[in-house]
């Protein structure tokens, strides 16, 4: 085993780290931003709105991410109409293709996560909001969505981590992400163990950071579910009478 090939080429990995972080965070932000309105419409919209959303979610959850990426990257490039259109400068870039695919993919999964937690809003909360005279929009903003986000957090943290790991596929379409860096090092030195264990450590470090921040958020949002503050409740030990 020879880790000098890693330390000597660490800049390749750092470049990969940068690309992975940008790609994943932009995809997650875009995906979540699209998913919130879509999830709400999916629950309260009329059938004409619900069906296209259902079809979208079904397509992206029903096909592998790799197939979706090949469709966008190589598939669209096949059509001359596409190549002549104003969109081509965007689709020409591997980066954009990966970003688009990842955003839509994570969006589809997030819609389902949010839909589930919106539907699961306790009836009492809605009733109380109605009784207080809230309009539907206000109720959505103040009661239903905050409550749904709390319930969605554990499932969504999974989605964040899946997206991070799914982003390794970007290396297939020429992007040098962490996996792409590992493939370059592997191909140059024929040392798959060193190359990929380094990539694995990078991914683990990122996952660890994500988990840390999710836990902070959970502490804040789920404060009402935490065990009561120990400093407030003091349990006194019963007095013992030694002499008795």
């Amino acid at each position: 085993m020879d880790f000098s090939i890693i330390t000597g080429n660490i800049d390749v990995y750092l470049e990969g780290l940068k690309n992975t972080l940008i790609l994943v965070s932009l995809s997650l932000i875009a995906g979540l931003a699209m998913a919130i309105p879509l999830a709400v419409l999916r629950v309260i919209g009329n059938p004409f709105i619900q069906w296209p959303i259902r079809a979208f979610v079904y397509f992206f959850r029903g096909t592998p991410l790799l197939v979706q990426m090949f469709l966008v990257y190589y598939g669209f490039g096949q059509f001359d109409a596409m190549k002549d259109s104003f969109l081509w400068p965007l689709f020409k870039e591997a980066y954009f293709c990966a970003l688009l695919t990842f955003s839509l993919n994570t969006c589809a999964y997030t819609v389902e996560i949010l839909r589930g937690s919106i539907v699961a809003t306790p009836h009492g909360e809605v009733e109380a909001a109605t009784a207080a005279g809230m309009s539907r929009l206000l109720m959505l903003r103040r009661i239903i969505l905050p409550s749904a986000f709390r319930r969605a957090l554990p499932a969504y943290s999974n989605e964040i981590i899946f997206m991070l790991h799914g982003s390794a596929l970007a290396s297939v379409i020429t992007i040098v992400d962490i996996t792409g860096a590992a493939r370059i090092i592997n191909s140059r030195f024929y040392s798959p163990y060193e190359a990929f264990i380094t990539a694995a450590l990078f991914y683990m470090a990122i996952t660890f950071t994500i988990v840390f921040f999710i836990r902070l958020l959970e502490k804040k949002w789920h404060a009402h579910l935490q065990p009561a503050d120990q400093s407030v409740i003091t349990i006194e030990a019963p007095h013992e009478n030694i002499t008795g």
Binding site: Y74, G77, Q78, K83, W88, K92, E93, A94, V172, T174, R183, I184
Partner: peptide, 17 residues
């Protein structure tokens, strides 16, 4: 740009990437 196979490289040359 590095490709896994020569066939993929041809696709991207034709696509203008």
């Amino acid at each position: 740009k590095r490709y896994g196979s020569q066939d993929e490289a041809y696709l991207d040359l034709v696509a203008g990437r």
